[in-house]
Each structure stands twice: as structure tokens, then as C-alpha cells.
Design a protein around this nucleic acid. Structure first.
Length: 307
DNA sequence: CTAGGGGTAAAT
DNA sequence: ATTTACCCCTAG
């Protein structure tokens, strides 16, 4: 019964992801036949692909379709304050007997190991790290290369270049990236385990007594590309995300602009947090418009200076 | 063939 | 105990 097990290799996951990106979710058979992926996925069946995709989605979204069905929701977020006050995200009434709990769980798979209780969100950080390490360029990669990688690997918001710049700058300032000549390399991780011989990493130096808004959950950066999962869940997120993303992106843009202007790294970090969220949300809904009409208007006109 | 609902069992 | 991977089955 059960099955001996056979963990999915990163390659397979990558192939699956790529396949879905190319053919869209649900075309398992097609993906499997695609000579591009058949090499790696020849050991998997179409059903396996489906199941795997399901698992990935569940992880990433928290509500693929399975867990939500009727099983306990255990403990979930609890620190969602006021968030949807600006946009009336009416949970939509699908006129169903089913629970319409299809809201955007700000939870993500990060599993808030930190008591910070900040809204854990997808971080552009990981995307950048992944880009650099995947590019494997000796001496590092420059901004353009990184941008290109991320852009055609995922979906990038219109102001992505700017976000990336701010982000790169921030990462460099905090010592997580090393900038040499025009290239960025990943700094040797200080490691969160024990080991006091921390390399000469300037770590925090620019955050003097920043308000408590910015906390670092950045020490996260796992080896696995968790980001993949995040962006991989692109099923059909409610269009609610469109509006939210549009606004978030706009706000983040403004915030970053201001922060850059004031040369305050800390604020960039904060702005980045929101930008990352916007990025992720936008990515989810834009990656594949399968059943979603492109009616999403990214009106960035309703910017509100809130900070 | 695919989506999903249900399982079992191995890994962690 | 939870996750993860595989299987099975049924309705479209």
C-alpha cells in the first residue's frame, strides 16, 4: 500500500514548475510529454505531477484545495490587524454552501518562528539570492543580469527595477551581499546556528535604533528555494489580489522613493517588505490568467501616503 | 485525462 | 505529530 517513497528532487520540482509555466497548470500529460521535461520527469506520472502540484500549492498557499475542504485549520495567523481597511475585500459571496474562506492568507509557509509576529511575507531577498546562486557567475552577477533572471523567471512589477536597486543596496548594506566592481555575490552566511567565529560581516550597522517596525526575519534564507513554492502556487487567486497588489505596489514605490531620498536604509527595508508582498501577490495573479480575464487594472493612482 | 476527495505510510 | 509522496477511486 503506501509507496516506498521517493522524494522529489529539486530538478523535478524545477521541471514541474517550468512545465506549468509553459503549459499551464493542469496539462500534466502535456508537460510530461514535452521533451524538455520528460527527461527529468520520466519517473513521474501525470497523476504524480498533479499530486505534487497539489502539495506544493497547499504549502505555499495554505489552501490549495485540500486542506481547506473540511479539515481543521489548526492554528493560523493571529496577527492580522487592520489590513483590508483601505479596500473592501468582501470575501465575495459565491453563493455557495461552502465556506468562502478564500482570502489571502498572509501566512505563507515561513512558519513564523519568530515571535515578532510581523506579517511574514514573501521576500524578494530569496529571489535575489536564488538568482545569484543559480546564475553561478564567477565574481558575482550584476544588477541587470539578476533583473533579467528574475524577470523572465517570474513576473515583475513595473517598478521592479527600482525595487531591485533598493533591495540590492539594502542587502549590500547589511552585509548579506558583497558588491565588487559591479557584481553582487552572496556573502558567506553567518549561520544562525552556533559558531561564534562570525566572519567579518558588517551586519547591522545602519540600523541604529530603528523603530520597531523593522524587525529582521531575514535571517531566514533557507537553502531550499522556498520562493519557488510561493510563486508556484499560482492557481487562480481571487482578483481581489489585483487591486490589493496594485495599491501595495504603488505605496511601496512611493515609500522607497522617499526612503532613497532620505538615504535611510531602514526605511528602504520597510518599504521593501511591502513591495515584496505586492510583488508576490501580483505574481500570483499575473503569472497565469487561465480563467482570469485581464480586466485587472493596475491603477496606481490611488496612492496614499500613510507612513 | 483531470480535479479532487480519501487513504497509507515513510520521512522529518 | 506533521509533512510529503504515492495510490485509489469517481465524476465530469
Amino acid at each position: 500500500m503506501g509507496a516506498p517513497k521517493q522524494k522529489w528532487t529539486p530538478d523535478e520540482e524545477a521541471a514541474l514548475k517550468a512545465g506549468v509555466r509553459k503549459h499551464g497548470p493542469g496539462k500534466w500529460r502535456t508537460i510530461l510529454k514535452d521533451p524538455e521535461f520528460s527527461g527529468v520527469l520520466n519517473a513521474r506520472s501525470n497523476v504524480d505531477l498533479k499530486d505534487k502540484w497539489r502539495n506544493m500549492s497547499v504549502m505555499a498557499n495554505g489552501w490549495g484545495s485540500r486542506e481547506k475542504a473540511r479539515l481543521a485549520l489548526k492554528r493560523m495567523n493571529q496577527a492580522h490587524k487592520q489590513e483590508e481597511s483601505s479596500l473592501a475585500l468582501t470575501t465575495e459571496a459565491h453563493s455557495d454552501e461552502e465556506i468562502a474562506e478564500a482570502r489571502l492568507a498572509t501566512t505563507s509557509s515561513g512558519t513564523p518562528q519568530i515571535g515578532g509576529s510581523k506579517r511574514s511575507i514573501i521576500r524578494l531577498d530569496n529571489l535575489i539570492m536564488e538568482a545569484i546562486s543559480n546564475l553561478k557567475e564567477l565574481g558575482g552577477s550584476n544588477k541587470t543580469t539578476i533583473a533579467t533572471y528574475i524577470e523572465d523567471q517570474y513576473w515583475a512589477p513595473p517598478n521592479f527595477k527600482r525595487l531591485l536597486s533598493a533591495k540590492l543596496k539594502y542587502l549590500t548594506a547589511t552585509g548579506r551581499l558583497i558588491k565588487m566592481k559591479r557584481k553582487y555575490r552572496i556573502a558567506p552566511m553567518p549561520v544562525l546556528s552556533d559558531r561564534r567565529r562570525i566572519p567579518s560581516v558588517p551586519l547591522l550597522e545602519s540600523r541604529q535604533r530603528i523603530s520597531s517596525r523593522v524587525d529582521q526575519d531575514d535571517i531566514n534564507m533557507l537553502t531550499k528555494a522556498q520562493v519557488d513554492l510561493e510563486l508556484t502556487k499560482m492557481s487562480m487567486i481571487p482578483q481581489e489580489a489585483a487591486a490589493a497588489a496594485a495599491q501595495a505596489v504603488a505605496e511601496a514605490e512611493v515609500a522607497i522613493a522617499e526612503a532613497e531620498d532620505a538615504s535611510r536604509v531602514a526605511d528602504v527595508a520597510e518599504a521593501e517588505a511591502e513591495a515584496a508582498q505586492a510583488f508576490a501577490e501580483a505574481a500570483m495573479k499575473a503569472l497565469r490568467g487561465r480563467s482570469t480575464p485581464r480586466t485587472m487594472e493596475l491603477s496606481r493612482v490611488e496612492v496614499q501616503y500613510a507612513t
